[in-house]
Amino acid sequence: MASLATESHPEVGTSSRMEGAVGELHRAIPQADRSAPKPPGYAVSPLRLLLALGGVALFAGLAVSLVDQLTAPIIAEQYRLRTEQAVFGVLPGATQLRALHLSANGIAEGAPSVKGEMPLYAAYDPAGKLLGIAIIGSGAGYAGPVQAMFAYRPDCRCITASKVLRSNETPGFGDRLGVDPEFLENFRALDARLNAEGTGLAHPIVAVRHGTKTEPWQIDALAGATISSRALARAADSAANRAIPWIERNIDRLNSP
């Protein structure tokens, strides 16, 4: 690289105003081809191109891996904190968290590693008693998917809380899903009992029009945001249908932290 640098600056002592322009001229027409009538800048040795690109790529790789090394633990901690906050938010009183995942073969320890596995979080109180299990589901809303976390409590076989993790719902309407106190009242004890065979929910969780809730497995939709409410109901229904049969089958294992 040093030789290239001197080649770019042959005229030492020109005024600083001219330096860049002259340097560029020499860069454009390499020494060997100066007499040839080729258009400027079209005859640079491939080695130089390779060196330039390789140098830039080397720098890029070094910089990215350095910053990755520096930030990776912080980022992992951030994600862990976010999950913990969400789980402790839907299962108040919990102090311990156990990350699990649900694959085709059942519940296993640790966070999901393969796409398609569903994360589960068992939450325990300080005495080590299982408070509930946080499950995550998503449903199609008014503007993209609505992803939410739900708290399932095995003692009442019901969903006791919801927290919207991600949504693009209309401000002032669909985004009230996570804050509207009347709507959150739906999740005081949303029925999630299994059917007799234990393969799925006895009653699908559905959203009904505002003010027409009659059954404990129904969600009373937000007025003016029926589609967003339905999306949340679908998220709850799909998550519950998939996870709760497995949770109930493994309840003894889950009961001990």
């Binding site: 290239l4 860049g20 860069r27 800048g41 079209y42 191109l49 330039a52 690109l53 830039v56 890029a60």
Partner: peptide
Amino acid sequence: LLRHWIPKQVRIASYIVIIAT
């Protein structure tokens, strides 16, 4: 900084790699 080292032919590619970094 690299303006004298990056040949014209590969400048866009180099800039994009730098920006992406």
